[in-house]
Amino acid sequence: MSDVVPIKLVCLDLAGTTVGDIAMVERAFAEAIATQGIVPGTGAYARAMVHVHRSRGCPKIDVFRGIFPGNEAQAQAANLTFERSYEGALDRAGLVPMPGVQEVLDKLHGSGVKLAIITGFSRATLGRILSFLNWDDHIDLAICPEDAGGRGRPWPDMVLHAVLRLGIDDVRQVAVAGDSESDMLCGRRAGASLVAGVMTGAHSRERLLKGGATHILNSIAEFPDLILTDDLGTYAASTPR
């Protein structure tokens, strides 16, 4: 008798995983940091952008708190600029889903799997993103850190919030997919049986494995074939379950 637990909930990341807005996010961070006196061409700017890259997937306000430690007012001001810059870029350029994402949502939704979007964006920014994507008929829940008590990735709260909201019986029935180390940590800490690192965004294969990825995918288009099977298989990740 197989001990494989069927997947009943999938938690998908946004930027770099299901939507291709990495450049827009990077520019918004750069503009926000510059308004606080850290400008391109300086060592402080280079260090700040390294921190941004390392912190991908985390709540945006937490990223700014790391750049401006001990100065909450400065972090909040930078975060506000980030949101305005990013939403302005959305208005100008729109938002393009990653190739194959619509088919992924169709397959998962059609199979009866619950779908949750989890993100480090604020609730206001997440609302704007969803208005561009028109995914209402395909997802069951869209979660930001504010919805889960304020803690975002790498903590497990958003995944566990989805488990509770959608009535999932067992955390092993959860699969998580994302492009950052914090996505992987979040999924593993939540007890998900499948945590897929996607190679279309922020972090390298090595960083994804360091975070605890159980599988590595070239793109999100490969995800349905991974979970809609009788045998999930295994992947030699560097962090033990």
Rank of each mutant, 00 (worst) to 15 (best):
V5H: 11
I7W: 01
K8R: 15
A15M: 11
G20C: 13
E26A: 13
F29M: 02
E31P: 04
E31W: 03
I33M: 07
A34L: 04
T35R: 06
G37I: 06
I38A: 02
G41E: 02
T42Q: 08
G43Q: 13
A44N: 15
R47L: 12
V50L: 15
R54C: 08
R54S: 13
C58A: 14
P59M: 09
K60Q: 13
V63M: 12
F64N: 02
R65V: 05
R65Q: 12
F68Y: 11
F68W: 08
P69Q: 10
A75T: 04
Q76D: 15
A78N: 01
E83A: 14
E83C: 05
Y86M: 08
A89F: 10
A89S: 14
D91P: 10
G94M: 06
L95W: 01
L95V: 08
V96N: 13
M98C: 11
M98K: 11
G100P: 01
V101E: 03
E103C: 12
L108A: 08
S111D: 13
K114Q: 05
I117D: 01
G120D: 00
S122P: 04
R123W: 09
I129C: 01
S131N: 10
W135V: 06
W135R: 09
W135Q: 05
H138S: 15
A142M: 07
I143T: 03
C144S: 11
C144Y: 00
P145L: 09
P145S: 10
P145V: 02
E146P: 02
A148K: 00
R151I: 13
G152H: 06
W155M: 12
D157G: 10
M158N: 04
V159F: 01
H161C: 10
L166D: 01
I168K: 00
D169I: 15
D170M: 11
V171M: 09
R172H: 09
V176H: 02
A177S: 11
A177F: 10
D179P: 08
D179G: 08
E181L: 08
D183C: 04
M184Q: 05
M184A: 09
R188Y: 06
A190V: 03
L194M: 09
V195M: 10
A196R: 01
M199R: 15
M199F: 10
G201R: 00
S204C: 14
L208E: 00
G212M: 08
S219R: 06
F223Q: 01
D225W: 12
I227T: 08
I227S: 01
G233I: 05
T239I: 13
P240Y: 04
